[in-house]
Design a protein around this nucleic acid. Structure first.
Length: 220
DNA sequence: AAGACTTACAACCGCCATCGC
DNA sequence: AGCGATGGCGGTTGTAAGTCT
């Protein structure tokens, strides 16, 4: 197979010229559901579509069954508790969606993944970005009692994930001469080295920033 | 009203692990 | 042990519906 792949690319899992693609029709759903309820998947998804009279790729059938046709699938909105759990588990194990979904009865890895990518991820990023934007300004004269700290500000949204720590906020210059990376406490914001103020917005959208922020969460 | 833009989610792609021969 | 077939999974894309201008 390796030789063939090298010569021709990966072998397709099915004859793509003769399978239907795109959204499933009600008739296809009914046929697939009826077949599996009567016969099971038979442990062979590749052969199933032919047996069920479907012009679909076996993988497509499997996905359709697991994500939408299977009994006890929840299709409604995610609850705050589910959002919290997703955030918490993502912090612990990362993008192992199947593992995360296994903790959410009725939800599939695809549901959880989509929900994270479309809502939770953006919401978390925006909150962290606003945290930076509102905090990143010249500090008032040094306080005698305590150092300014990055405070956790959480709106009453469905997300209850919290930064794991409130890192020491480095002293900033009072002028607009620019913000030098050396001002940052390396232990807390070393990853910002090399960025000036103009670059922060780009940084906030970077994968690395997201990873760092994620690592700051604590369990709900 | 209509085109542009955004959002949400279904579906597909391709890599990797596992299993049976 | 090696190979091919298949399942499982995460990343990505396509597109319908909603919103904005």
């Amino acid at each position: 197979m390796l030789v063939r792949e090298l010569r021709m690319g990966r072998a397709p899992c099915c004859d793509k010229a003769n399978v239907k693609r795109g959204p499933w029709s009600l008739e296809e759903d009914t046929a697939l559901k009826r077949y599996i309820e009567e016969n099971g998947s038979g442990g062979n998804w590749i052969a199933l579509p032919k047996k069920a009279g479907l012009r679909r790729c076996g993988k497509s059938c499997r996905l359709r069954w697991l994500n939408y046709l299977r009994p006890n699938i929840k299709h409604g909105c995610f609850t705050e508790e589910e959002d919290d759990l997703i955030c918490s588990l993502y912090k612990k194990i990362g993008s192992r969606w199947s593992a995360i979904a296994s903790k959410l009865p009725g939800r599939t890895d695809n549901h959880v993944k989509n929900h994270w990518n479309t809502k939770l991820k953006k919401r978390v990023m925006e909150e962290q970005a606003s945290l930076f934007n509102t905090s990143y300004k010249p500090l008032p004269p040094p306080l005698e009692i305590s150092q300014p700290r990055l405070q956790t500000v959480r709106s009453s949204t469905s997300i209850n994930c919290q930064p794991i720590s409130t890192p020491s906020w480095p002293e900033l210059p009072s002028s607009d001469e620019g913000l030098n990376a050396s001002m940052w406490n390396e232990a807390d914001f070393g990853f910002l080295s090399g960025f000036d103020f103009e670059s922060i917005t780009d940084l906030l959208n970077s994968p690395r920033f997201e990873a760092v922020i994620t690592s700051m969460w604590i369990d709900a």
